[in-house]
Amino acid sequence: MLSTESAATVRATIPAVAGALETITARFYDTMLSERPELLDGLFNRGNQADGRQRKALAGAVAAFAVSLLDHPDERPDALLSRIAHKHVSLGVTEDQYVIVHKYLFAAIAETLGEAATPDVVAAWDEVYWLMAGSLIALEARLYQEAGTTGRDVWRPWRVADRAEQTPDAVTLTLEPRDGEPAPGFRPGQYVSVRVQLPDGLHQARQYSVSGWDGNRRRITVKRLRAGEHPAGEVSTHLYDRAAPGDVLMVSAPAGDVTPADGEHPLVLASAGIGCTPMTAMLQHLAEQGSTRPVLVLHADRGPEHHAHREEAADLVDRLPGAAAHTWYERGAQEAPGSRAGTMDLDRIEVPENAEVYLCGPLPFMRDVRARFLRAGIPARSVHYEVFGPDLWLGTDD
């Protein structure tokens, strides 16, 4: 909870600070990473630095947290913080790094705001920062404890046991622990970070959903985002082009909070493109449980040849007596009997009452489909989404 004095100052200055946050965060990242380049080696995603998404996400998260403190002073916005904490845990973020961030962030605030950064203003926003940082540190400590790690040992060597082509741009890698120790437990829908050394010597990490499992093995599916066309695609391109059986990858403990709750209430799994990967894991989990709960599986893709895990998902749906599936293809629908042409359209889909909805795919897709579910009567609290990379949706009601 913000002190009374700080709350008044934050409320008075939030328009000015929020309006300058992108400038502040851009200056923050530029200065910090130039003076502490080791942070870019395995922790920060340089692709997201290049296209500006990381600073937009940080600005949005800080602003949303400040607004939440003002509007709901007696509540901690765990829904806002949980996604950030899980991402941090998958990368091994530690408490001492919040001190480094604080140093450079507040130097950027003072430089950007100039004379407007009075001692009272800086002190009030300093309180906001440490309330947010303290909450994240506490959440991350709990997640590390649950995973049996400390934050400094989240990475383990895993061997590529198998490689299978999924689509012209996606490959499935089956991994097994190289150290012979048991694979950590995980919940369907969670992801792991994979860290690789790129040709220029820099280490970079990206997140991939666990798309399946078999005993001690875990499976991820990597869609190639061509690095020349997408700044953040250098790791996916590297894995797609080079990962082969026998290779060793550094893989983190599982993380992610978009996992279906147990129970008998209906589930709706809506995905587009490679967003089908966490849904495939959820379907496998339900099939292994012998679940009879209602499950509605919705997927949209460019065409049948681009639909990863297409046959596997169909087989899993067939194993679930309460499941039904609908698929849309922008082209080639006539080649896939039972599919529909175009983009996902819920107008003729009967959405179950009391359903929990899970979304994964490109952000424009999720924005559109979420709005459709809300119009269909699904409460906002029952629509969950997974996004990889900086979350530009944090704190919004759109």
Rank of each mutant, 00 (worst) to 15 (best):
M282G: 06
S291L: 07
P294I: 11
P266R: 08
V268I: 11
E264G: 03
G290V: 12
V268K: 04
A287T: 09
L296S: 06
A272E: 05
L283A: 04
I274N: 02
T277K: 07
S291T: 12
G290R: 12
Q284R: 15
A261T: 14
G275S: 06
A261L: 14
T277S: 11
L269N: 04
L283S: 04
C276A: 15
G263A: 04
E288D: 15
A261D: 14
A287Y: 03
Q284K: 14
T280A: 15
A272R: 02
Q284Y: 00
P260C: 10
E264V: 13
T277A: 12
H285Y: 13
G273L: 09
A261G: 11
L269K: 04
V295L: 05
L269R: 04
P278F: 04
Q289Y: 00
D262Y: 00
V268A: 05
T292D: 15
I274W: 01
G290Q: 09
R293V: 09
L286M: 12
V295C: 06
L267P: 00
S291C: 10
P278E: 08
A261C: 05
P260G: 09
G273A: 11
T292Q: 13
L296C: 09
L283N: 02
E288A: 15
D262T: 14
V295W: 03
G290D: 06
Q284L: 14
H285T: 10
V268S: 02
L286A: 14
